[in-house]
């Protein structure tokens, strides 16, 4: 049985369709990603799965519980970390742990053991009595994660857990997510950092309330039919200008010093075509190579092929 089974899940706010017929399954112990820009419907979907928001139509089962009907029983078996930092800032780290232990019925020896685990995991030993609001953001986020998994939930929902954190702390946070998954927790995590999606076993791409692609990161990348050619020239803006007008080029954009050119078909022909276009425009080409598409390329390409614009 899958940890999460979602079928045609829809949520509307008046005329606005926040989530449109989402259907997907999450296996036990999987790290499952929601990737998409702000406003794609990631948070709304997670809130419905946690029983915080009633679906307009469709249904979802989480850990075997119906999200709309059995919300109360469901909450004891899931952990949730909302988008904004949401522990009590005027309580100390230890008081926050004690509060959530009380709410999740974690008591006695188990409490002592879990408390130690959280303090160690969050790197908060020696800071137990510091008021949470004064801790650095990275520590707060790890403490929030600790409070969300105090009761060792079957399924953990993380809504953009790393937004606003520096890259090093973000990396460390993902190590924690991996450890939890290793221990058997199913993790559903949303992010708008494309590179973070690479850490997921499987993911769905969401845009404007709809799932536009689903699969493992590797599968999504190889399913992309278009190719990306990276060129370095003497004048990137003028190269983009020349390439955009050329036939066979879907899109040309600056990527740092380089220019990324999206072409319909991969192969030597395309590389030749790009080189010739640039030379004809009077540019000198320093290097030209075909690169593996990133998830960002996949995302943009998928949105483009659907004829839509990116929300955000």
């Amino acid at each position: 049985m899958s940890a999460i089974a979602v079928h045609e899940l829809t949520r509307t706010f008046d005329d606005f369709v926040a989530v449109d017929s989402a259907t997907f399954d999450v296996a036990r112990g999987e790290i499952f990603g929601f990737l998409g820009p702000n406003g794609a419907g990631k948070t709304t979907t997670i809130r419905m799965l946690c029983g915080l928001l009633r679906p307009t139509s469709g249904h979802a089962q989480v850990a075997g519980f119906h999200v709309a009907r059995d919300a109360a029983a469901l909450r004891a078996r899931i952990g949730y970390m909302s988008q904004s930092f949401s522990l009590y800032p005027d309580l100390t780290a230890d008081e926050n742990i004690q509060l959530f232990a009380g709410l999740y019925d974690v008591t006695g020896a188990r409490f002592a053991q879990r408390r130690e685990w959280v303090l160690g995991m969050a790197g908060l030993r020696g800071f137990e009595r510091h008021v949470t609001g004064t801790l650095p953001l990275g520590f707060k986020q790890r403490l929030a994660l600790g409070c969300a998994v105090l009761h060792e939930p079957l399924i953990l929902f993380l809504d953009e857990p790393t937004s606003g954190v520096d890259p090093v702390a973000r990396r460390g946070f993902w190590d924690l997510i991996h450890d939890l998954a290793q221990a058997g927790t199913t993790v559903l995590v949303s992010t708008h950092y494309m590179e973070e999606a690479e850490y997921c076993n499987r993911l769905i791409l969401m845009n404007r309330g709809r799932i536009i692609a689903a699969g493992a990161p590797q599968t999504l990348r190889s399913a992309m039919t278009e190719a990306i050619i990276e060129v370095i020239t003497d004048d990137a803006p003028r190269a983009v200008e020349a390439l955009t007008r050329a036939g066979g080029v879907i899109e040309a954009s600056m990527y740092g010093r380089a220019v990324h050119v999206v072409v319909a078909d991969a192969g030597a022909q395309a590389v030749t075509m790009v080189r010739e276009t640039l030379v004809a425009a009077g540019r000198s080409v320093e290097s030209i190579t075909q690169v593996t598409p990133s998830l960002e390329h996949v995302f943009v390409s998928t949105v483009r092929s659907e004829g839509g614009a990116v929300a955000g």
């Binding site: 109360a72 909450r75 909302s82 999740y104």
Partner: peptide, 14 residues
Amino acid sequence: ERGTMEQLAATPVH
């Protein structure tokens, strides 16, 4: 206002 209600709501507290 502080967004703590959402976290509270996700716990089994009645």
